[in-house]
Amino acid sequence: MIFPGATVRVTNVDDTYYRFEGLVQRVSDGKAAVLFENGNWDKLVTFRLSELEAVK
C-alpha cells in the first residue's frame, strides 16, 4: 500500500522517470503525486498507482 510520505520507485519502463525514486505527496483516484528532488530542482509528477512500487 502506498501512502503520503512513502518513498516510491517508478516501475513503468516506458516512462521518462523509470527507476527514479521520490516522495509521495498525495494519493487519490488511483493516482499518486510524487515529488522528485535533485540538487537545485524539484518536480511533482502524477503516476497511476500501478506504475509505482514502495521502496523498502
Rank of each mutant, 00 (worst) to 15 (best):
R26F: 14
F3P: 03
L49N: 03
G30D: 08
A32E: 01
N40M: 11
P4D: 04
V8R: 00
W41C: 15
M1P: 12
F47T: 01
T11F: 04
D14Y: 12
I2N: 01
F3Q: 10
F47V: 04
L49R: 02
F47K: 03
G5W: 04
L44K: 04
V10K: 01
T46C: 14
G30C: 07
T11R: 07
A6C: 13
L52W: 02
D42V: 15
L49K: 03
P4E: 08
K31V: 12
N12P: 04
L44V: 13
E53G: 04
F20Q: 12
G22A: 03
Q25E: 07
L52N: 00
K31A: 08
L49Y: 05
K56N: 12
L44A: 06
N12V: 07
T7M: 13
R19C: 11
T16V: 14
R48H: 14
V10F: 01
L52M: 02
D29R: 09
G22T: 01
L44D: 03
V27C: 06
I2H: 02
D14A: 12
N40K: 12
M1L: 12
V24G: 00
A33F: 14
N38L: 14
V24R: 00
V24Q: 00
R9N: 02
G22E: 00
A54V: 15
V34K: 00
L35R: 09
A32V: 10
Y18C: 03
N40I: 10
K31R: 11
A33P: 00
N12R: 10
A54L: 15
L44E: 10
G22L: 03
L52I: 08
R9Q: 06
S50E: 14
F20M: 14
E51V: 05
V24N: 00
A33W: 15
K56V: 14
K31C: 12
G30I: 03
V24S: 00
V27N: 02
T16D: 10
A6W: 08
A6S: 10
V24E: 00
T7R: 15
T46M: 12
D42Q: 15
D14Q: 12
M1K: 11
V27S: 02
R48D: 14
D14N: 14
V27Q: 02
A54F: 14
R19K: 11
T46K: 05
A32G: 03
F3T: 10
V24T: 02
E37T: 15
Y18L: 02
V45D: 02
E53I: 09
F36H: 00
N40S: 12
V10T: 02
K31I: 12
N12D: 06
L52A: 00
V45W: 04
R19H: 10
